[in-house]
Computed example of a mutant assay.
Amino acid sequence: MAEFLISIATYKRPDLLADLLRSLEPEVAGEDVRIVVVDNHAEGTAREVCETSPLDIDYIVEPRPGIAAARNRGLDRVAADDRFLIFVDDDERVHPGWLRALADAQRQYDADVISGPVISVLPADAPAWIARGGFIQRARFRTGDPSLSPATNNTLVRLDYLRSLGSPRFDESFSMTGGSDTAFFRALRAAGARMIWCDEAVVDEDVPVERANLAWIWRRGIREGNVSGRMLLREKSRPAVVVAGLARIGYGVAAVGRDVVLQRGVQARSAAYITRGIGWIGASRGRLVTEYARPTESVEG
């Protein structure tokens, strides 16, 4: 039905979603594009934004709570002759030329997965140590380099490749902790997917004030450790993961100490060893950070 299917999962962010849709308007003009918005709020809080947008949007509500359920509902809307699936988040804005950059890179490198940079725009009053230490900001690479950790925040996937794998789904046991996209793309990599970076396909993401602080960054680091720890447990025993976690914590403490002694300030790369180690141990014990849990919902897995 289309060259590109853009899939957007959203939950109670109508204003941010409206910004994203406005940024997409010039990108899809004249292109063979379908847009699917999956609203994960049962009351349909994104309906008005989608219905008033000049874009032709396939708007659906997925009442089952959880980001993985919403992503899977988006997969349900893939048609047999759609060629490429593109994921973007509802709190982002795409840069001019974003769609063409993804498409051109896919053709040039004959890749199964193309991902691009997400630029975290910090609040004006964010503590200086966040930017100085590389916290929150994501790494960038040269176009054509391997894409090391694709996510659903700015990624194109060749649908023929997904179909050749039996059309895999997002693991809904990660819905409340996050990480279903990490597990999804890790499985594609294990299956031999060619994953490439495109540095010209840029999106912006405003960092909310409530995230520009130590408590949120620390919690996020542990949550990411939980995710990788849960996947590691599929290959290793619980004691082995605990020991590996303790080793990472020890290394991280030493690395942070070195940063301080050398007057670099605490660096995200060093601190990540600590939070990942804690996250691995938590995963081994079933103690998970449920960042996306809702008051009446529980987590399995």
Rank of each mutant, 00 (worst) to 15 (best):
T152S: 15
R189F: 10
S298N: 13
S164A: 15
V61M: 07
F87C: 03
G279F: 01
I86A: 05
L24R: 04
G192Y: 11
G265P: 02
Q106G: 02
G301S: 14
I35S: 04
A126N: 08
A68Q: 12
G279C: 04
G30W: 10
P123F: 06
L214N: 00
D82K: 06
R285D: 14
A193H: 01
T296M: 12
D58C: 13
L5K: 01
R163N: 10
E43H: 10
C50H: 05
Y109K: 01
Q263L: 13
G116S: 09
L232T: 08
Q106K: 12
A240V: 00
V78E: 06
S53I: 08
P208M: 10
D32T: 09
V49F: 02
E62T: 02
A139H: 13
V61P: 03
V157G: 01
P239G: 10
V227E: 07
R142V: 15
R73A: 15
R248Y: 01
V266K: 02
D32H: 11
L5A: 05
T290I: 04
V261A: 14
R248E: 06
E205D: 06
Q108D: 14
I130Q: 01
P63I: 05
V260M: 11
A42L: 09
D171E: 14
V289T: 08
I217E: 04
R71M: 12
D160W: 07
R83G: 13
R211M: 12
R13E: 14
D82R: 05
G30Q: 14
V78K: 02
R64T: 15
V203S: 12
D90H: 06
R22K: 14
L156W: 04
T155Y: 00
G282E: 02
G225H: 05
R83S: 12
A255S: 13
V121A: 13
W98R: 04
E31M: 14
D206M: 12
I249R: 01
F135K: 00
G192H: 10
A126Q: 07
R264P: 04
A111P: 05
A191H: 09
G44F: 07
G44H: 08
D206N: 13
M1D: 12
